[in-house]
Design a binder for these strands. Structure first.
Lengths: 184, 184
DNA sequence: CAATATCGCATGCTTTCAGTGCTCATTCAA
DNA sequence: TTGAATGAGCACTGAAAGCATGCGATATTG
């Protein structure tokens, strides 16, 4: 469950590749052959990343792609959002503002923030969705994870465990953490 | 991205419904009409939950389903795993043991744990997947979130923020938590 | 027996996803 | 100027997953 698409995998790999080589331009062919992913499909993904402003493309011979954002200030979440749309575990777990904010890199979208919710086939139609609140909490927690990791974290091969800083833990509320000791 | 299926939503709703009414038996029709979900499909989901041991079914007139597990000791993750298979954001982000462990409720599976990985079309074939380690970290963090929330948390409408207990935070390592202050 | 459930199997429809083909535009180097 | 290399745009196909329904069998209650 909750699997990412290939497009996302390819995009993440490419982004990581570019982030490892600042200044250099890598062509779609380079990356595709390097990691054994279909060149044609990667090109499609790169085009999308280019439109969203995450990479800069240069055409012609010896052209290619370069990273166009700060790796330390760009979360994995926004990259994935550019490729797959906003993160929403369930239809109702989003709001207009969030959905609009997702998917663009630097170019300061700022549209007239209309707050028409997407057609909530489930939760809006029937007023009494019993799990709305709790699911929203889970959703926010998972979203936060995607937000914490940046492009830079993708290229740091180090598996050292960086401890969690305090002050964040209270922001989103995990309910019964003792439960985590059970399994996992 | 990372959206749950309807089956999961329906299953979670049903589980929550049953957890709110301990002892009572609710039929598929009851639940379906109550929340406006297709009765026939819900029945399919309930059958699956019954096979996995999460609910107990009783046939015949005045039959229905009852919760068969301890709501405080059953994570959302295992419920979802029973409906959609194990949580894996990418193909390589799992291992044999985990995949086997997922999806069963109480009945102590304990199969001869063969550790043949699934066909890793991407990461195994080409030795050099650059994002393997980092993605695994993200994966584990998200998995932990699903593990922390229990069935009981689904029915507590209270939005009170329970603080995170210490001692857990160091288990899985978030890399640059300061990043979270940026957005969100 | 009759009504009400679940159970098991099969089936059709729709959407998404993965991947490819082809053509044009752009750039660089010989 | 020419040709090779590269990205951009558009459309398309095949496969798989997801959603939903139908029907008959079986179990249970009254």
């Amino acid at each position: 469950m909750l699997r990412l698409t290939r497009r996302s995998e390819y995009g993440i790999i490419a982004i990581a590749h570019l982030a490892q080589r600042p200044g250099e331009a890598a062509s779609a062919r380079d990356i595709a052959e390097r990691y054994g992913i279909p060149k044609r499909l990667l090109a499609e993904v790169m085009k999308q990343l280019s439109h969203r402003g995450f990479v800069r493309s240069s055409r012609g011979a010896s052209g290619g792609y370069q990273l166009a954002v700060d790796p330390t200030r760009t979360s994995v979440r926004v990259v994935l959002a550019a490729l797959e749309g906003p993160f929403e575990m369930v239809q109702c777990a989003t709001d207009g503002a969030r959905a609009l904010e997702d998917g663009e890199a630097g170019r300061a979208v700022a549209p007239a923030a209309s707050s028409h919710f997407a057609q909530n086939t489930l939760c809006e139609l029937l007023g009494s969705c019993p799990i709305r609140g709790p699911v929203q909490r889970i959703h926010d927690r998972m979203r936060l994870v995607l937000e914490e990791f940046t492009i830079r974290d993708l290229i740091s091969g180090g598996d050292g465990a960086v401890p969690m800083t305090a002050g964040l833990s209270t922001a989103f509320a995990p309910p019964a953490v003792a439960a985590a000791v059970r399994k996992s």
